[in-house]
Amino acid sequence: MRFVLYVLAALLLGMTIGHFYAPDFGNLYELMLYALIFIIGIDLGMNFRASELRKLGKSALFLPAGTLVGSMLGGLVAALLLGINLRWGLAISAGCGWYSLTGPLIAQYSPVYGALGFLSNLTRELLTVLLYPSLSRRIPAEVAVTIGGATTMDTTLAIMTKFGGREVAVIAFVHGFVLTAVIPFLLPLILGL
């Protein structure tokens, strides 16, 4: 949770400096983005194991597929409600809570929608932490995992393990793992539409 505060502080500091001084950092932003994508790639290459998916059978793919499709449907509705181009709506929602990837990728095309992608997905992560404990008592705990999107393999895994149990922890991890493997490929495709 402390890291989220650092992230918010970095965003607010950047916005303040950008607003009052408008400095030109050249292409440092793009360089950082490529460095981040490169590190994410190394992480995926070191940890992706198809055998983990086989352990859970079909639900390993159905659950994250449902999360992604549902999230994008929700994003389309949000875009229609807010009068935003559907392409931005799809891109923002396809991030499934992965704010550190979604915001910067969209910001390559539009800083404003990049910020919206960042804050929307950060809000989704915060809402997951707040809502999972009560939601997992009202609907099946493994279905409630879907609210966390891609964050269920790391930042929200602990809360799901605590309130959903050890069996849900495995489902949550694989759910987040599959989405984490898919989103870096899907987002650029949507943005290229």
Binding site: G66, S93, S120, I147
Partner: peptide
Amino acid sequence: SSIVFAVLTIIGSVGVALFLGVR
């Protein structure tokens, strides 16, 4: 707008998972 997106994407994800009857 961030809150609208966050809430609707969560509702969408949970709704589709419930609709598919994932168990």
